[in-house]
Design a protein around this nucleic acid. Sequence first.
DNA 1: AAACATGATGGAATCGTTTCCATGAGGACG
DNA 2: CGTCCTCATGGAAACGATTCCATCATGTTT
Lengths: 328, 328
Amino acid sequence: MRTRTTIKDVAEAAGVGVATVSRVLSGGSASPQTRERVLAAAAQLDYRPSALGRNLRRRSTGGIGLLIPDVTDSFYGRVADGVLACARAAGEPVIVGATGDDPEDESELIGMLLEQGVERVVAVPSGEAEPWRPATRAGLTVVFAGRRVAGVDDVPAVLADERSGVRTAVEYLIGLGHRRVAYLGGHGHGQRTAAFRDTLTALGVTVDEELIAFGRATRDSAYAAASGLFQHRPDLTALVAAGNLLGEAAVLAARELDLRVPKDISLIMFDDVPWAELCAPPLTVIAPPARDIGYRAAELVLRGASPRGRAVRLPTELIVRGSCGPRR
Amino acid sequence: MRTRTTIKDVAEAAGVGVATVSRVLSGGSASPQTRERVLAAAAQLDYRPSALGRNLRRRSTGGIGLLIPDVTDSFYGRVADGVLACARAAGEPVIVGATGDDPEDESELIGMLLEQGVERVVAVPSGEAEPWRPATRAGLTVVFAGRRVAGVDDVPAVLADERSGVRTAVEYLIGLGHRRVAYLGGHGHGQRTAAFRDTLTALGVTVDEELIAFGRATRDSAYAAASGLFQHRPDLTALVAAGNLLGEAAVLAARELDLRVPKDISLIMFDDVPWAELCAPPLTVIAPPARDIGYRAAELVLRGASPRGRAVRLPTELIVRGSCGPRR
DNA sequence: AAACATGATGGAATCGTTTCCATGAGGACG
DNA sequence: CGTCCTCATGGAAACGATTCCATCATGTTT
């Protein structure tokens, strides 16, 4: 098979040197007629500069790396969508890796990105600081999205305003008369959990630790946690689910135990997903701007985010549908 | 900042030539003690060979490209997950692009991949043949996933067995006594639509073209199509939705029009999604093995799929939940 | 008109790897 | 003991772009 056309071919065809071709193509100075000739030759030969050569010279792949726990989860999918959209607008390729929220896999994937010469990364971090040491040491520009990592303070982050979102949710439930409000959290929801506790105390409701449960990042584990909560404490009248997987589990468990929503129990979920509207009744949610988070993070990383950048917090939105009612 | 350590540094530290280092690291022949020394030096310097240099030399990025319409859609998300899993097992990076099912964007993204030196691509194609011409001309190894393209026959594909899946669905509904069965299709569902028609005629039910409607790939459009169908033909008793977006629209529209499922209308959807179980009643579906499709496609492309490969069809599964009942 | 500034241009170095090829050492065999 | 073969080894040439720097032509200033 014929080899792809290189800058040398174009130079030859246009009767100029390779340096001139490079200059013309990257907007450097050149006389009008030379520029004309080069452009014509390039077009005629259907020349596309190879990123390979350029990358080697520049000692970096232009693109951006994206590390998320799971492409399949609606929230991370939307974050990824935002990153992809921004990168595409900038003409940058995106290398994606799924970490499964496992620090080890995360570490390996970071290594892979380093090897590829990627120097800009957007990540929803697993939570461990360790995997990120080599990254910052190697001079990577990293922006965290949706979460941050304790102990990695020199990395800017784009987050949902979880505190305020959760506060709104809790206030809403308390306003509806609920007093025994449960919380179902998962991995990476430290902020939300803290906000839940704080808001309750701020409203003068003592925190009942038994009403706070956690599931791991699988459907089964989340379901077990939700079901356990409902059965162990039948007196609870409302529940805040800290993520879409947890919310799904809560809906399922409630149905399984014949708890009517919202009559027997009020449900509110952090994260908005398509199915929230399909539920019966439709789920009331705190919607984080997942796509925007991804987009903004990508913007930041492309702009070469200042290492000492602070966190950007994007507002969430309370979307009242039908899953919360007055205390029974 | 110190520059990253190169093969030259390792060679120097080990007191050997760069060729030897390269050989040792890529499993070539070398004397035991030399190998030892090189390995030690490499470990000590924390050397990682740069993919940049290698790629240039090899004239190709090792990785694989992945083009899907929308990361956010559950089906494509699962396909992507499968591809990512397989690529990770093989240690290959994946460059992802979202085409939005737009041939123009698709074409641009293919160009981007070409430029990056990617030579293996898994894609859920938009349906146009044109964007793929430059790809095959440039010698790309392409594998289609989930769909194929009319007129691009030299590209192998990994598909769900849609014919058989849709046939099962229709037979199920007919078996339940339904005669006026509607179909709600979308972009890229040619196979499903054909199978729908064929099965009806095979079962001796005349196809009522008015009961076949299409939505574009947006929620609004799908909803409009579903709602229109229900209102225009209140006599229909069952509906097959050809994809998860269409199914979502059907559920929503049915609820809006106070049609009870499955009493007034039976619903069956092609594609299984988490929310299918959350619906009230839970949705009966034809589940395609989306993740497997992605995984197999990636396997194929990594194995350097034979250009004249035929299509692989993976079986679907009918999952009976609660959205289909006997004809009213 | 000489000296100088300006701008276009091409040659060559460079990036970090892999791989071809030549070299040399050492063992086997006649 | 000489010849040949094998094998480890290192130098150097790719790969395809960018970019430094020297060169040369042109126009400007004194």
